[in-house]
């Protein structure tokens, strides 16, 4: 995490032969770890992100992502591995959001002012920790904009374990959660424990955010958590297909991002956001086109889009 690219580094040449290129890239253990971690994170973020977009809680996801920066910085300052800081701060913040009703919503006026202040203060705390920890200033960019260098095998194991637990929990509550997200009032009447589900989901979201931040950096969590899910929502309204598309886009974006970042001096966060955003724009255009065609053609088979 602390390692930064030295400027004199020469970057490997792209030979246009995918097999040799991949083999050359995977000869480095750190790249293998980066791909493992990226894959785990892409699956986790794709699934949790899809639920987050359905539940319209992207504001909460944004807030949790901002919190991960002081978390990692604080852990580094205390001499613990940043992973602990990421998870402790994100899950803690998720519990705080869960405790304050409507805190995860954007709200308006004064509520937004409070959330904005807390976010900015959290980032300021992160900056304080970074300044207090001398010699770490070079690493601040990788904390904020993501880095795939120096991911250890232990980190991959931790990520895999966290992802397994998170996804298992989500699988258990998937159906009632979807019901509660689509129509909380009816779900509550039918005896679905809406409040418990909401708190559980926020904790899962905190975990996913903490995991995603480690790859994309604090500021670009949206790239993996929201954009694949939003793209999937543009393409299909069915939950199973939506989840699958979301995970698939996350994987494609992460892998291409890793490859591009390996072969060039620019940070992975830039590539992941650009690819994910490009796919989102494409999906929106496709949907607009499909709608325009459907409107022109009198046929009743209209493509109904997902986003409510």
């Amino acid at each position: 995490m602390v390692t930064t690219l030295s400027l004199a580094d020469t970057y490997p040449a792209w030979s246009w032969n995918p097999v040799t290129d991949l083999r050359a890239m995977w000869a480095f253990p750190f790249m293998v770890n980066a791909f493992r971690a990226g894959t785990i994170v892409a699956v986790l973020a794709g699934v949790i992100g899809w639920y987050m977009v359905v539940r319209r809680q992207s504001f909460a996801g944004h807030t949790l992502a901002q919190v991960s920066f002081p978390g990692a910085a604080c852990a580094t300052l205390l001499g613990i591995t940043p992973v602990v800081g990421y998870f402790a701060f994100c899950v803690g913040a998720a519990l705080v959001i869960a405790a304050i009703p409507r805190a995860g919503q954007g709200g308006s006026g004064q509520e937004a002012a409070l959330t904005g202040t807390v976010q900015a203060f959290g980032l300021a705390c992160g900056f304080l920790f970074v300044t207090l920890y001398k010699g770490f200033l070079g690493g601040i960019n990788s904390l904020l904009f993501g880095s795939f260098l120096g991911i250890t095998t232990t980190q991959v194991t931790v990520l895999a374990a966290v992802a397994a637990v998170t996804l298992t929990t989500l699988a258990v509550i998937a159906r009632p959660l979807l019901f509660a997200s689509a129509d909380p009032d009816v779900a509550a009447v039918r005896g679905v424990p809406v409040r418990v589900l909401s708190v559980t989901f926020l904790v899962l979201l905190g975990t996913a955010t903490a995991a995603t931040s480690q790859i994309t950096g604090t500021l670009l969590v949206f790239a993996l958590l929201v954009m694949p899910a939003a793209t999937a929502q543009q393409l299909t309204a069915r939950p199973a297909a939506g989840l699958a598309v979301s995970v698939l886009i996350g994987l494609v974006v992460t892998w291409t991002g890793l490859i591009a970042a390996y072969y060039s001096p620019y940070p992975i966060g830039f590539y992941v956001t650009t690819f994910a955003f490009g796919m989102y724009v494409l999906a929106r255009l496709t949907r607009l086109l499909a709608q325009a065609l459907a409107r022109r053609a009198p046929a009743p088979a209209r493509l109904s889009g997902g986003a409510a």
């Binding site: 904020l144 904009f145 670009l220 790239a223 956001t273 955003f277």
Partner: peptide, 8 residues
């Protein structure tokens, strides 16, 4: 998010 990525 994309604009921030561009910033990076």
């Amino acid at each position: 998010a994309w604009i921030l990525g561009l910033g990076a």
